[in-house]
């Protein structure tokens, strides 16, 4: 997929800004002054920032890299699986990214490199990183949210969307500013 470079850049700036703000004080990240528009019936889907997560060169096969998307409070992993998969990005169609908050009760998932699954110490749920986060076994009533990725010519990997509701949110993008930035 081709990505508008301007959006990518905006997304990147937004990502950096988010990080910087987080460093200054985590609570500040998601403080939102609700605009009057929020009271209206929400749009069918939220607008996502396009955030640079890494460059292909940074990834080693089957070694997860911690990322955050769409904002600093939403942890995830970026993995180069080493073999093409459905939903995989990049020239080898093998790069995937997932939320690592368990969609059951929000415990942090950990990666099992031996079988490429994300596993929950909370209540033993398992998600398959080679099958778009399909729950192999568990208590979540949805499959694992996957961050949609694009990779540009320079090998920069950007997250541009999320395909399921992220744990602990009623709205995947908490920070309204990110949305208005992208709209700009």
């Amino acid at each position: 997929m081709k990505e508008c470079p301007k959006l990518v850049e905006l997304g990147r700036r937004q990502f950096l800004r988010g990080g910087a703000v987080a460093a200054a004080g985590a609570a500040a990240v998601s403080v939102v002054a609700p605009t009057p528009a929020r009271a209206a019936v929400p749009a069918a889907r939220v607008d996502y920032p396009a955030n640079r997560l890494a460059n292909i060169k940074d990834l080693k096969v089957n070694e997860p890299m911690q990322v955050n998307y769409p904002d600093i409070d939403s942890p995830g992993v970026l993995i180069k699986l080493g073999a093409p998969v459905d939903g995989g990005a990049g020239p080898d169609r093998d790069i995937v990214a997932y939320s690592t908050m368990c969609p059951h009760k929000g415990y942090p998932l950990s990666y099992n490199a031996a079988d490429k699954t994300l596993n929950c110490p909370g209540h033993f749920s398992r998600f398959d990183c080679e099958k778009e986060g399909q729950q192999v076994w568990g208590h979540a009533t949805q499959n694992l949210p996957m961050f949609r990725l694009t990779v540009d010519g320079a090998g920069d990997i950007h997250a541009v969307g999320v395909d399921e509701l992220i744990y602990g949110r009623t709205r995947n993008v908490l920070n309204e500013d990110a949305v208005s930035l992208r709209r700009g």
Partner: peptide, 18 residues
């Protein structure tokens, strides 16, 4: 405060299946 990420085992989280 639903503008914030909720912590694990949050009583306030509901998902599409619910």
């Amino acid at each position: 405060d639903l503008t914030q990420q909720q912590g694990a085992e949050s009583a306030a989280w509901y998902n599409p299946s619910m």
